[in-house]
Simulated scan of single mutants.
Amino acid sequence: MKGAEWYQTDEVAEEYEEKRFSRGGRLIDRREKQAVLDAIGPLEDKNVLEIACGTGRFTVMLAERGADIVGLDISAAMLQQGRQKAQSAGVADHLEFMRGDAGRLPFPDDHFDTVFAMRFFHLADTPATFLSEMRRVAKEQVVFDTFNARSTRSVYNWLLPMGSHLYTRADVEKLLDDADLRLVDAEHDWILPYGFYRKIPGAIADPIRDVDTTIRDSPVGDYFASVSYWNARVE
């Protein structure tokens, strides 16, 4: 995985959410959470695995809504942040955080109703391996997002300390086909990249986001979107 050592440091874990989801980044947090909720659907008693759960912002949210959920991550520091978040939300008894390798999931076949990963595949050196493992342990559904090759992110991607793996739709369709997954739905969003929103105050980000959404809803919106949310079913 790209930047694995960087990602696991205590300093990164402690500052992760403040750096990404404050200021204009709050818009990103809300949109990503809504994308997960829309894709997964009813949560009561659903058995869910989150890959690369990080600080648990999705894990805790789904536990609060009735899911039986396991959050898996390679970073012990990130998982500790997640456990603290779960304690504060009063759901520590309703979820489990585990340290583990997404390329070798410690679960039997068809163990979870839904398996999902957000902010993961852009760092994956071997995406086919990870998606195959997600498919193996999923009984019904696999959900994930990608950063897109034909987008503004490609302009500055080379400046990022870890870079990113950018995907075309054809790339994703091949990954799904190879993993025996059937694409059910896809949403495409964010003409402007995440990094732009994180740098500006929320009061400025809101009207810019309105313009961004207008472009997204236009005939060229899907083509230039920075992010895609993929909802696939097990064949």
Rank of each mutant, 00 (worst) to 15 (best):
L105V: 11
D217H: 04
V137K: 11
D212A: 01
Q87V: 09
E50A: 08
S218T: 04
F130D: 14
L159N: 07
M78V: 03
E5Q: 12
L105K: 11
R23E: 13
L123I: 03
T59A: 00
D73R: 05
L62V: 05
E18H: 12
F120N: 07
D38V: 06
F147C: 10
L105P: 11
K85F: 05
I51W: 07
E140R: 11
R30F: 11
P127V: 13
E187H: 06
S228A: 04
M78G: 04
V155M: 06
A232V: 02
G56R: 02
L175F: 08
K85H: 05
K174A: 15
D125E: 14
V143N: 02
T213W: 01
A186C: 10
P201M: 02
A124W: 04
E11L: 08
S218G: 15
E173L: 14
G41F: 02
T214K: 14
T146C: 03
Y156W: 06
D171N: 12
A89R: 08
K2P: 01
P42R: 05
Y229W: 07
G82K: 02
A232L: 02
L62A: 12
G221E: 14
R26D: 07
F144E: 11
I74W: 14
H94K: 14
L95I: 02
D185K: 09
V70E: 07
V172C: 01
P106A: 03
I215G: 13
D38I: 05
M134L: 02
S164R: 06
Q141G: 00
V12F: 14
M162Q: 15
N47Q: 13
V48C: 08
W158Q: 09
P201S: 06
K174W: 12
N231V: 04
M162A: 12
I28E: 09
V48Q: 06
M134T: 06
V184L: 10
R150T: 11
F224N: 07
G195Y: 07
Y7Q: 14
L192I: 09
D189E: 15
I191Q: 00
V12R: 15
D222P: 01
L192Q: 06
D189H: 08
R104S: 15
G100L: 03
Q80R: 11
R57E: 15
M1F: 07
L62R: 08
F121G: 04
N148T: 00
G163E: 03
D180C: 08
T59P: 00
D222Y: 01
A4W: 03
L49R: 08
R233H: 06
L192R: 09
D45I: 03
L95Y: 02
R153Y: 09
A179Q: 12
Q84D: 15
R209S: 13
G66Q: 12
A179K: 08
A35P: 02
R136Q: 12
P207Q: 13
L62K: 07
K174H: 11
L160Q: 15
A124Y: 03
T168P: 00
F112S: 14
H94I: 03
T59K: 01
H165I: 01
R65H: 10
M118R: 14
V91M: 10
W190G: 00
V227F: 00
K46R: 15
L49H: 07
T55L: 06
A205M: 13
A179E: 15
E15R: 12
P106M: 02
E11P: 03
H188T: 03
V143Q: 03
G221T: 12
L192M: 10
V48P: 10
